[in-house]
Amino acid sequence: MAEQYPREDMVVVLGTPTAESSRLYALTVTEGDPSWAGALAGTPLGLPVYHVTEDAIKCQVSPEVYEEQVTLMEMVLDVADIADAVQAVRDSSAPAV
């Protein structure tokens, strides 16, 4: 996948339910994880990663679509903790080259 597209064009957007799972996913896609057996096994380092509920994403999404697809879950998930976890991973990883 990463070979098909320029890396600077790619963004990973998460829908994970907890801060911990968000952190693990975010680490996997930024730092890579050879033991990860999922769809992103072998993904190279440095992909920018966001959670769909983060303001950086939310503010660009059609409000109607967001309301229909995400708002209810946003009410029940700890979105502040999730945002902190994903932000921390972004801050600690080298910017995409």
């Binding site: 064009d9 790619m10 957007v13 769909v52 999404v61 697809q69 879950m73």
Partner: peptide, 29 residues
């Protein structure tokens, strides 16, 4: 970060937000 024109990898989770919901959101952007 502008979503416009970006290639999105939507990684959803059953107990959070599903991939298809993320896809619809990012496509709308």
């Amino acid at each position: 970060m502008q979503l416009q024109g970006k290639k999105i990898i939507a990684l959803g989770e059953r107990d959070g937000i599903q991939g298809s919901a993320i896809a619809q959101c990012t496509a709308s952007a």
